[in-house]
Simulated assay, not measured.
Amino acid sequence: MATMEAPATDRSKSATGLKTAVAILEKWGASGEQVAAILRVSRSTYARAKRADPEWRVSLDEDQLTRVSLVLNLHASLRVLFDNPRNLYGFMAMANHNAPFHGRSPLEVISGGDMLVLYDVFRHIDSLRGAQW
């Protein structure tokens, strides 16, 4: 069975999404190891995503694209909840004693790389905004 290469436009969009997700995760205080685990990318892909090369392209699988999407949507939910950058970018690194965090920060919780946990954290934070969209 032949594997089809992703079209160049899809690879360009994937690179843009990945670069944005990496930047957000780093603003939340994630380490390189945490970013790679959360997005399920290799350390070399993470390093390339950090560079400012506008010509860089990447093929991401459905799981990776979903993870990027969840990080972007989590950030969007936080933007609705918080007006100031300190809370917007600091919330994910703050210890939280509510379920599902139980004293850990949301970033700590999602750093294990489990897709369902990432989705649950997104869903929880998204629910905090109520019907504010």
Rank of each mutant, 00 (worst) to 15 (best):
S59I: 02
P7H: 11
D61V: 10
G17L: 13
R123F: 00
D61E: 12
S12L: 09
R123Y: 00
V121A: 00
L107W: 04
R43C: 03
S42G: 11
I38V: 15
A37E: 05
A93Q: 13
N73A: 03
E55W: 02
D83W: 09
S111R: 02
R104I: 05
R129P: 04
A15G: 12
V80E: 11
L116V: 07
G17I: 11
W133E: 06
S111E: 09
E33F: 09
A23L: 03
L60W: 10
K50A: 12
L81E: 09
N73G: 07
A23I: 04
A47F: 08
A37R: 13
A93T: 09
G113K: 07
S12Y: 00
N98D: 13
R104D: 07
V58A: 02
A30S: 13
G17P: 11
E26K: 15
H75S: 12
R67F: 07
R79D: 14
P85L: 05
P106S: 09
S69A: 14
K50W: 06
Q132W: 15
F101M: 13
Q64E: 11
G17A: 09
G90T: 00
R129L: 01
L118C: 02
K13N: 09
P100C: 13
L128W: 12
R104E: 11
A36H: 08
Y119I: 08
I38Q: 01
A37V: 00
S14W: 11
F91D: 07
S77A: 15
R43S: 10
Q132F: 15
P85D: 15
I38P: 01
W133H: 04
D63L: 11
L25E: 08
S69L: 12
G29H: 03
Q34H: 00
Y119E: 09
H124I: 12
V80W: 13
S12G: 03
I110S: 05
L74V: 04
G103T: 13
M92N: 06
V80F: 06
R129E: 13
M115Y: 09
P85V: 03
I110W: 00
A52T: 15
S59K: 06
G112Y: 02
A2R: 10
I38N: 03
D61S: 00
A37H: 10
M4F: 14
A30P: 05
L128D: 07
R51F: 04
V58T: 13
M1A: 11
A37G: 02
Y89F: 15
R11K: 12
Y89P: 01
L74T: 13
A30E: 02
L74C: 00
R86T: 07
D53I: 08
T9I: 10
H124Y: 15
K13Y: 09
A15P: 10
E5A: 15
L39N: 08
E26G: 07
V109Y: 01
G90P: 07
E5K: 10
D120H: 10
P85C: 07
R104K: 13
V117A: 02
V80P: 02
F82A: 04
W56K: 06
A2D: 05
R79P: 05
P106H: 07
Q132C: 12
S69H: 12
L116Q: 14
V109W: 01
T66M: 04
L116R: 11
N98H: 10
G103S: 14
V58S: 01
R86K: 09
S31C: 06
F82I: 01
A49M: 04
M4N: 14
Q64W: 05
A6I: 00
G112H: 03
Q64V: 03
R40Y: 04
